[in-house]
């Protein structure tokens, strides 16, 4: 932030906003040990309890005081059970999906924040799946509270959770087509009519990056 200057043009230099909203993918990259604070303990405990650690965990990212473990979807249930039983992460704060269309092959991410009441710790699990095969094993048997969260992530992003007891739409009407919070789904607003002119909806206005 300090190198670049807060304001000013980036990329093509077009500040008029007529180019529309342009999105870029988030940064990827792993963090080096030592991670700092309790993250090293968590990583060590997990490695000890789960010998296949390096196969299952693709990446460990420590950013802004938070630990994110990128897990492969095949090993997700095993890792979650170990985290819940051995490392005492009793509560899962839900699932949220993120759609990175620019990141081909890993477009849909599901993020699980975990909380340990016994040790007063927080970490995050992240699973990436491609658009063409957006299946993730369901964690309802590990943490029952994920039931509705997985339904919501399915409803909003189209990620299908295998093994979910009843994966249906929860927020949109039952016969809705499409998954609204994906980046390729338009916001769906209508132009606002005034006397003699209209204002376009927020997704079609001039927008800065």
């Amino acid at each position: 932030m300090t190198d670049q200057g807060m304001f000013g043009a980036r990329g093509t230099g077009d500040t008029s906003g007529y180019g529309g909203l342009v999105r870029s993918a988030a940064s990827t990259g792993s963090s080096e040990r030592p991670y700092g604070s309790y993250f090293d303990e968590v990583a060590d405990d997990l490695e000890r309890a789960y010998p296949l650690f390096s196969e299952a965990i693709e990446r460990v990212v420590v950013d802004r005081g938070e630990l994110t473990l990128h897990v492969k979807r095949e090993k997700l249930v095993e890792v979650s059970m170990i985290l819940r039983d051995t490392l005492k992460f009793e509560m899962c704060m839900g699932v949220s999906g993120v759609h990175y269309p620019a990141d081909s092959g890993r477009e849909l991410h599901a993020v699980y924040p975990l909380l340990s009441i016994t040790n007063n710790r927080r970490i995050r699990l992240e699973v990436s799946v491609p658009d063409s095969d957006s299946h993730i094993p369901s964690l309802v048997e590990v943490w029952a509270g994920n039931n509705w969260h997985e339904r919501e992530t399915f409803d909003m992003f189209g990620i299908i959770f295998d093994g979910h007891p009843g994966l249906t739409r929860i927020l949109m009407p039952d016969d809705w087509q499409g998954h609204p919070q994906r980046k390729d789904y338009s916001l769906g607003g209508i132009p606002v009519e005034y006397k003699g002119a209209t204002t376009p909806p927020p997704s079609e206005r001039r927008s800065y990056k």
């Binding site: 949109m172 609204p180 338009s186 916001l187 769906g188 209508i190 927020p202």
Partner: peptide
């Protein structure tokens, strides 16, 4: 809320 979910 000028979007897909709300009746305008």
């Amino acid at each position: 809320f000028n979007n897909y979910a709300i009746v305008q």
